[in-house]
Structure formats: C-alpha cells, structure tokens
C-alpha cells in the first residue's frame, strides 16, 4: 500500500514503514533504548532523503519515549533535578546542532556528516558495550568489589549541587556537558541519545542504575521535542505522516520486545545490543567506502 509523504514529496510503501517501525520498536523494547540510532539509518536505506529521515527520526523518538517516561515517573525513577541539569545542556546543544545541520545541508554534505557521525558514535559505543559486557559475562562467577564510584578530577569542579534521588553531590558542569553533547548528536543524527546517555550517566556521573533509564528518558523526550520544533522551523523537514507510520509500528513492537527482554540477563542483553550497534556502524561504513552506482547526485538548490 503506497502512501504519499507530504513533506518528503514522495510516495512510499506504508507496510514497509510499519514493518521498520515494528522491528525497531521490538528491538528498543528488548534493549530498553529509543531505537532512533537504528530507525534513521534504515529510513535512509529505504530511500528517504537524509534531512527528512533525521528530522522525522527525532520526532518519532519523542513519541516512542513518552510512554516509557510516564511509567518511570509514576514509579519515582526520575531524578527531575538531574534531568533538568542535563536538559539545560541538551537544549543548548540541540540549538547548535540544528544550526550545524542547516549549514551542512547548504554545503550538500548532510549524507556524509550523518553517516560519519553514526559510524564514529556507534562504532565506539558498540565496541565499549561489547567489551564491557564480555568482561561482565566472564567475571560473573567471581565476587567483585562493589564500589559506588571513583573520585577523580571531575569531582573538584565548582557549582556543586545535591542530587537527592541520584545520591550524588557533584558540580553541575559535567551533567550539562553530557547533555550538551547528546543535544548536538540528537539534532545531527535524529536520535534521542539514550544509548549514549545511559552509559554516560552510569560510568561518567556515577548515577545509580535504578534512576538512570527514567532520567535519560526525561532528557530524551524534551530534547527530541526541541529538535522537532527547531527542525520544522529551520529546515522544514519533519514529515508527520512518516512519524505516525513509524510510531504505529513501533509502539506495538516495543511491547513484544519488552516482554522478551525480561527473560534475558543484563550482560547478555548489553552484549547483543553492542553487536547490533556495531553491525549498523559497519553497514554505514560500507556505504561510504563502496563505489557509488551514480557518479553524480542532483537535488533542488536551496
């Protein structure tokens, strides 16, 4: 069944998009991440132009994260103060990121920049996850020392604030920097950034795991809402029909994924997710080095 996308100005197979939404939703439910990092490259592979895929990907991430945020909020797993600190950085980062994206679009380098960002970010995050989870699987039977977190230079920074729910007393600078970085990536890659935010909160900020998912969803929802708004104003490339098709598939897929995810162990889940992330990075890398079918590309001038 073909559906015309009013912003992308092209007609696409609705069942294919529902299928992509379902598949990505299933994986995101399984691994507890938003899935934007899979959605945007898949959309580009099906022929949706990169600017539309990135901007609409951010909007669909917002929809996919709302229900998760609501259930975590009800259970009290959201550190709102930490979330707001991340958000201040996230807003600044996404404003800068959207400007960067508009500049890249004028230069005609969006495709390259999006692919490059994905390869670097997914490649390093995937490799870290595989290494860490493999280590955890191998060490499972040994008794490790349980440490809250290590103290290093970061803890000497000024502007300290007490984050009660996270049981932390740290400077606001590191969480704001983390939020800022994720905000930029969110605008350029069309992702919520949960897959980077979660490890950053655990390993960098030393937050307890219980509040990490809820707080990251808090940041993801608001930053992706900001990116959606800024992208529609600046580049006009959010396609609401595309977003709805992806959400329709994604929301149902996520329920099946979450049910299955409950049966897997944490390290094994992280190991599989790491492999998946690496596979997407490898696929995009291949797309950049392989000789293109067409030596030229055409597009309407801005």
């Amino acid at each position: 069944m073909q559906v015309y996308l009013p912003i992308a100005e092209m007609s696409v197979d609705a069942l294919l998009l529902l299928g992509i939404g379902f598949g990505v939703g299933w994986l995101s439910g399984l691994f507890g991440v938003g899935g934007g990092f899979l959605m945007t490259p898949l959309l580009i592979l099906t022929g949706i132009p990169s600017p539309i895929a990135v901007a609409s990907g951010a909007c669909q991430t917002l929809g996919a994260s709302v229900s998760g945020l609501m259930s975590h909020w009800r259970r009290g797993n959201v550190d709102a103060r930490m979330g707001l600190t991340l958000l201040v950085g996230g807003f600044l980062g996404s404003v800068l990121g959207v400007q960067l994206f508009a500049l890249l679009r004028r230069l005609g380098q969006v495709d390259l920049a999006v692919a490059f960002f994905y390869i670097v970010v997914l490649g390093s995050v995937g490799a870290l996850m595989v290494r860490e989870s493999l280590g955890a699987i191998l060490q499972r039977n040994r008794d490790g020392q349980v440490r809250l977190h290590e103290h290093f230079w970061m803890h000497g920074l000024p502007l300290k604030v007490r984050y009660r729910k996270s049981r932390l007393y740290i400077s606001i600078i590191p969480p704001m920097l983390v939020g800022f970085g994720i905000g930029i990536l969110s605008a350029v890659m069309g992702v919520g950034g949960g897959f980077m935010l979660v490890p950053a909160m655990i390993y960098l900020l030393g937050m307890p795991t219980a509040v990490v998912i809820g707080t990251s969803l808090f940041q993801v929802v608001f930053v992706s809402a900001n990116v959606t708004l800024l992208q529609s104003i600046q580049t006009g490339s959010v396609d609401v029909v595309l977003v709805l098709l992806l959400l329709a598939g994604g929301v149902s897929g996520a329920q099946f994924g979450a049910a299955m995810g409950a049966k897997l162990r944490g390290e094994e889940t992280r190991f599989l997710l790491g492999l998946l992330v690496l596979a997407v990075a490898a696929m995009l890398f291949w797309g950049l080095v392989q000789t293109p079918e067409q030596a030229f590309v055409i597009e309407p001038a801005q």
Binding site: C59, Q60, L62, G63, A64, S65, V66, S67, M70, V221, A225, T228, L229, L230, Q231, S232, I233, V238, V240, V243, L244, L247, A248, G250, V251, S252, A254
Partner: peptide, 15 residues
C-alpha cells in the same frame, strides 16, 4: 512543529 510534538506524544501515550 508544535503539532508534530503533540501528535507524536499523543500517539506514544495512546499506544
């Protein structure tokens, strides 16, 4: 943009 945000949030919640 605001409408897209509202629609996406509503669709996610409804789902």
């Amino acid at each position: 943009g605001l409408a897209c945000i509202a629609i996406a949030a509503f669709a996610g919640w409804l789902g």
